[in-house]
């Protein structure tokens, strides 16, 4: 028994089955929260945005489903609400700038135009645990690259879905992902070199 998202939504909306809604939350909480946490880089804020997202989901479903239509894309719909909440927050904190439309055009050689914005490894704080280092390196990625990486790895969306959600072409999404991986690898390598140097000196 593994009911689809849409069946659970119908159970909740039409029969008021709160258990069905709970299953939906349990099923998708890590994807939505992981994306939000990676975007805002603050757990408390991510908690607030997560709550705000699902309260909007409840409100929309209660108002004759609001903007949601049964299309087999419940998670995509929830992530769209979550993304809007995150971008509103980041814009209010002036930590997000929209990419100019010229970068989203398919006829442009996007691969060569993406700037290498990776911060220097010197800025990264030394951490012993690998997970912390990885998280730190992800946080240091440029916003657009970080978002695509989070949507792919945390929310488990396909590049096509990412392109639809973020309003860019699939080439743009793939380009951001490629540079995200390249920068991440560069940072991790630099970090491991610094760790080795520390060990050698000690």
């Amino acid at each position: 028994m593994f009911p689809a998202d849409e069946d659970l939504v119908i159970q909740y909306v039409e029969k008021g089955d709160e258990k069905a809604f709970r299953i939906l939350i349990d099923r998708h909480q890590e994807r939505v929260f992981g994306y939000l946490l990676g975007m805002v880089r603050d757990r408390e804020t991510a908690n607030d945005l997560f709550q705000e997202t699902f309260l909007k989901v409840i409100s929309a479903l209660s108002n004759e489903r609001g903007s949601y239509t049964v299309q087999g894309k419940f998670l995509g719909w929830v992530l769209r609400i979550a993304r809007n909440a995150a971008l509103d927050y980041l814009r209010s904190r002036k930590k997000w700038t929209d990419v100019s439309s010229s970068y989203a055009e398919d006829d442009v050689d996007y691969w060569d135009r993406l700037p290498d914005e990776s911060p220097s490894a010197d800025l990264l704080v030394h951490r012993s645990e690998q997970a912390d280092v990885l998280k730190m390196c992800i946080d240091a990625l440029p916003a657009e690259q970080r978002e695509v990486l989070l949507l792919r790895h945390e929310a488990d969306m396909t590049f096509k879905e990412i392109a639809d959600l973020t309003g860019c072409s699939i080439n743009t999404a793939l380009g951001r992902m490629r540079y995200a991986l390249i920068n991440l690898r560069r940072q991790l390598t630099a970090q491991s070199k610094m760790d080795l140097t520390e060990v050698a000196q000690s």
Partner: peptide, 13 residues
């Protein structure tokens, strides 16, 4: 790099 990302532990609210 992807392998390291796949090993990353998921966060929950």
């Amino acid at each position: 790099t992807k392998f390291k990302l796949d090993l990353k532990k998921s966060d929950r609210p």
